[in-house]
Amino acid sequence: MTAPILQITDLTRNFGGVVAVNGFNMTVEHGMIAGLIGPNGAGKTTVFNTVSGFYRPNAGRIVFEGRDITGSPAHRICRYGIARTFQNIRLFGNATAVENVMVGGHVRRKKQWWMPLVFWPGVMEEERSIRSRAEELIRRVDLERYRNEKAGALPYGAQRRLEIARALATEPTFLLLDEPAAGMNPQETEELMQFIKRLRDEFGLTILLIEHDMKVVMGVCERIWVLDYGRLIAEGDAERIQRDQRVIEAYLGDSIDAAADGGGERAGAGPESGTEGESC
């Protein structure tokens, strides 16, 4: 509990003339479930994409476990121990559930790609352990009955859980969840909240999540950061955020329709929707 696991200082990211994130600061402690909220287009996903290495920040520093990861490519950041899920689920649709998770396990392998060709000592054991670990994760997220189904054919909630299992296969210490409750009914949302808490405890994770569903945010997050127009407008625990005048203004504003944001609507507009962007 000494040093924070993730420290973001003065993070800024522009897209052309639009400043998506502007001087953002955040310090996440070990073992915390943290929340990042804000109206549509506030820059939440941009923060995620910058932390996970998909965007290079224009300014600022990101330090993860004492290591400066600013501008590192996505695959290396994953190796350092940050895993993520996507707002619009991105599974490998043609592959089975188990194969999806096995891809996640690949980053921790020690053998080279050509070694199976010559039956290199230990390579078969490693292949088997990647598979058995994948099966184990599938079991732990309760997807056993879908293990050999095509990922694209799974029900929505199952796809969400599979994406989390795939992220867990990379053996992260820090998990980024981008709108895990999007498109879920109240029953599923309730289960998800328990699931997220269980994940943190069983895997010893630190979790940062973006969420529009305020029930989830207030229910699981121990600390919440609120973004509006790329700026941090509030930070604190659930109670404090709910009472914060600027947060209420940002969500309700002067037009009534902005209030709909609080109801778990899937985000769309603004630079933050560019999840598939590859600008780095």
């Binding site: 490519p73 695959h75 991105r90 649709g93 999806n100 891809v103 790609w113 199976p116 292949e127 795939r166």
Partner: peptide, 29 residues
Amino acid sequence: VRLLSSNFGNVIKAVRDDEVAARAMGIDT
């Protein structure tokens, strides 16, 4: 066949199907 049936096969198909997700899984696509 041997390469594709090892995890390398899963990875190369993953890169084909969704490069962004593959990168997020730590794969140097």
